[in-house]
């Protein structure tokens, strides 16, 4: 008899896990709370992905197709886990979706509920939602995905754009001490895309540290070498309104200029990633642990990063911390292997 495995969350991690398991002949139940699969990249219409600027459709579209065309995967959209309990070595869950409630028994479970974007309105110094031309990376990602690179206030091309890193990350005031890992690379990628679209636009990146780790560094170099993106070391302290419908970024250029107040046509806040409300919700429902950063806790961050602290429940993707799509997919595969082994042993 085939194994039954529950995958919660239909983003890159969950989709890949579901497909791998289905290929092994497992009966997979894939539960997604949204009306579509694809996770955050789909929700915010990412168009081109770092590091190689390939169309997001190549990756996300492929994963969705793979899951949708596989008959071993039972797909639940607009769905959630209504109740969950252990049943010996197995698990019993009630899945509620638009088609009603279903109770099922599973041999193992993969949680891939992902992340939420930090809401920059929570940090008042950035004046997000106060000025139309102050947006964040997910807004810009969506705008660019829709082919729109212009200023929200008047629809005109921006003369200059400031990109501010580490918004909602590495900051005890907002409660997130960790680095969100991808926002530096996303921002450098967006700077390049902006410059490719509007070569005349001046693009500034205000940073504390540029963390384009590993090969992502190539994009950082490209931004400077080929697009003359201005990289300024200093965190912006305040955003106020300026003359001629501009917004003024005020801060310290710690290496060159000292104090600055520069009017910009557009400001992009590189808001970070958070565990979101779904992480505590999963911890609560499934009886697994949260870590001190608000993400789901790995049994051992080095030895068994795909295991939760409960046998038979596995973790994949951004639900355990900020990461790139490649990492999320990798973890989906690894968690699928762990979940398969557990199911095989106990079914």
């Amino acid at each position: 008899m085939a194994e039954n495995i529950l995958v919660i969350g239909g983003g890159p991690a969950g989709l890949h896990a579901a497909i791998e398991l289905a290929e092994l002949g497992v009966n997979v139940s894939l539960v997604e709370r949204d009306t579509f699969f694809g996770g955050n990249p789909k929700k915010f219409k990412y168009k081109y992905l770092f590091p190689d600027l390939q169309p997001a459709e190549n990756v996300i579209g492929e994963l969705i197709k793979g899951a949708e065309s596989n008959n071993n995967i039972k797909k639940y959209l607009s769905a959630n886990i209504e109740s969950f309990k252990e049943d010996g070595k197995k698990f019993s869950a009630v899945i509620k979706s638009s088609t009603g409630s279903e109770t099922k028994t599973f041999d193992s479970v993969i949680v891939a509920t992902g992340f939420e974007h930090f809401d920059p309105a929570k940090d008042s110094k950035y004046s997000y939602q106060l000025f139309d031309d102050v947006i964040d990376i997910k807004d810009l990602e969506r705008m660019m995905g829709e082919g729109n690179f212009t200023r929200p206030s008047n629809g005109k091309p921006p003369k200059n754009v400031a990109i501010i890193l580490c918004v909602g990350s590495r900051d005890r005031h907002v409660g997130n001490q960790y680095c969100s890992r991808v926002c530096c690379t996303v921002s450098v990628k967006q700077a390049i895309e902006l410059k490719e679209h509007f070569p005349e636009t001046e693009v500034y990146i205000f940073y504390m540290d540029i963390r384009t780790y590993g090969f992502y560094e190539d994009l950082y170099w490209k931004a400077m070498e080929e697009h003359d993106v201005q990289i300024v070391k200093g965190r912006v302290a305040e955003i106020t309104s300026g003359p001629d419908n501009t917004v003024i970024c005020k801060g310290e250029d710690t290496l060159l200029r000292g104090p600055f107040e520069i009017p910009f046509d557009m400001v992009v806040l590189a808001s970070g990633m958070e565990g979101g409300p779904q992480s505590p919700e999963m911890a609560d429902k499934l009886g697994i642990e949260l870590d001190e950063h608000g993400f789901l806790k790995q049994a051992n961050v080095t030895l068994s990063p795909f295991k939760s602290n409960k046998d038979g429940i596995f973790l994949a993707g951004a639900c355990t911390g900020p990461k790139a799509i490649a990492d999320a997919i990798l973890e989906g595969g690894a968690a699928a292997m762990d979940a398969y082994i557990y199911a095989k042993k106990n079914s």
Partner: peptide, 8 residues
């Protein structure tokens, strides 16, 4: 962090 936000 030597970030300069205080100075800004």
């Amino acid at each position: 962090l030597n970030c300069g936000v205080c100075t800004g």
